[in-house]
Amino acid sequence: MQPLTRVEGRAIPLGLKNVDTDIIIPAKWLKTISREGLGAGAFEALRAEPGNVIDDPAYAGANVLIAGDNFGCGSSREHAAWALGDLGLRVVIAPSFSDIFSGNAVKNGILPVVLPQDAVDRLLEVAREGQPITVDLESQTVTTPYQDRFTFTIDPFRRECLLGGLDEIGLTLARAEAIGTFETARTAAQPWLMRGTGA
């Protein structure tokens, strides 16, 4: 995973609330067996509308997306995070995120930034002026050229994973012994739990 420390650039002022993962990437794009190329299907229905913000040349090259409450709700499809990454986005700012989406985002080097609605509204204004937004994960701040400065909180483990570009599976495999101990105790105490399909 590509580490993320500081992102500076244009932001797409989407602003909508309850942006579900079917909006981010419709089901027909899920038939792929690859993680690549999903940007082409990102926000497909939205981008069919003339003058939509995603394809607006004013926001070309944006690496930040600003949205409303409950971003990424619905399906667990990680394709949503892959699609946003393929569009070049590294940060999504919103008042709230769905639990599954924010986890998927972090695992793909995309930072979900939670800020209060008034801060999000201000950043939407700045973005619509075409001004850059700076997101710094180390200092946990979002700043603008107008001296706006918002601080955000993030789960420390997610922050560590993003800053270091860490492989979570590698981290867990390093604890294989503890997992083995847990399994041994469980097999002795409740063997039926460990049978699964082999019941």
Binding site: E78, A81, I100, G103, N104, K107, I169, T172, L173
Partner: peptide
Amino acid sequence: GTSEVEHVLAT
């Protein structure tokens, strides 16, 4: 998500 599917399969 799929990264977690992989995590569960491996660990």
